[in-house]
């Protein structure tokens, strides 16, 4: 039997890997080119003229793109913060204890994570309208919690499930207050998991389109809404520039978390969303 040449196998893998990676960034290429194009008609392979106009528009304070970037960031941060505040205790209950009704609770948490936004958004709009929450940033943050909170809770449940409860008990017997125990024992143990869960929760909120459109009623202009209004008006150059601005924070988040996800990340990937 002939053994395959290991170098040849390596080359094949690299080739397959490159094909995969190439495919993955391919759709970003025309977006990037459009953002510096002035006119790019068929059959030109490259833009007919290069221009910084789209970027000048996107970075001009009067165009509202930067304002929208700040607003999108603020909403995602607030959503993540509330989700962590509420989701960490719930995750602790689910991860550390066995109790009756746990199945139902898990299902109730899982359903909003699995169901598409379109299934609840009409009803949610009706409820929020009566509460005066439509068209407000607060309303949009609450709506974003529907997909974000289950995610945070389930990931934290997985993190707590791997936590050794004995450590906390020992700290308590050694005289630590509950707060000291949390700060010095529990928090350091769950922090890496919490960070990654938080960063992905941020991204889930960051990517929302439909919930923001319906609950914000256009008044809460996050980046995807702004980009969409240029895209649907055929301004491919400005669309390209906003698209690149829009994916930037994701890139930053990724650089911050790359190690956690590829490393011992089994529990974290449980909470990944498509």
């Amino acid at each position: 039997m002939m053994r395959p040449d290991p170098r040849r196998a390596d080359r094949l893998r690299l080739l397959a890997g490159l094909a995969l990676a190439g495919t993955l960034i391919l759709p970003l290429v025309p977006l990037a080119l459009w953002s510096v194009a002035q006119g790019w008609r068929f059959p030109h392979l490259l833009p007919q003229a290069w221009s910084g106009r789209a970027w000048a528009h996107a970075l001009d304070p009067a165009s509202g793109v930067l304002e929208s970037l700040a607003l999108t960031t603020l909403i995602a941060l607030a959503t993540t913060f509330i989700a962590a505040l509420v989701g960490v205790p719930a995750g602790r209950a689910l991860g550390l204890y066995r109790f009756r009704g746990k199945g139902i609770v898990t299902l109730l948490l899982l359903a909003p994570a699995v169901l598409p936004a379109i299934a609840v958004v009409f009803g949610l709009h009706g409820v929020f309208l009566r509460l005066g929450l439509t068209g407000t940033v607060a309303g949009v943050i609450l709506a974003h919690l529907v997909p974000v909170l289950p995610y945070m809770t389930l990931v934290m449940a997985a993190v707590f499930a791997r936590l050794d409860p004995e450590l906390e008990a020992q700290a308590r017997t050694l005289g630590a207050t509950p707060f000291q125990t949390f700060r010095c024992v529990t928090l350091p143990a769950i922090l890496p998991g919490l960070m990654t869960a938080g960063l992905f929760a941020f991204l889930v909120s960051w990517s929302q389109y439909l919930l923001t459109l319906a609950i914000g009623g256009g008044k809460v202009q996050t980046l995807p809404l702004l980009m969409f209004s240029f895209s649907s008006a055929g301004r491919n150059d400005i669309t390209g520039a906003i698209a690149l601005i829009y994916i930037l924070p994701g890139l930053l988040v990724l650089i911050l978390t790359a190690r956690q996800v590829t490393g011992r990340g089994a529990a974290l990937t449980q909470g990944l969303r498509p």
Binding site: A62, S63, S229, F230, A233, R235, I238
Partner: peptide, 10 residues
């Protein structure tokens, strides 16, 4: 208002 024209927006 319809927001698809950068000129009108400006």
């Amino acid at each position: 208002m319809w927001g698809g024209s950068d000129m009108i927006n400006a």
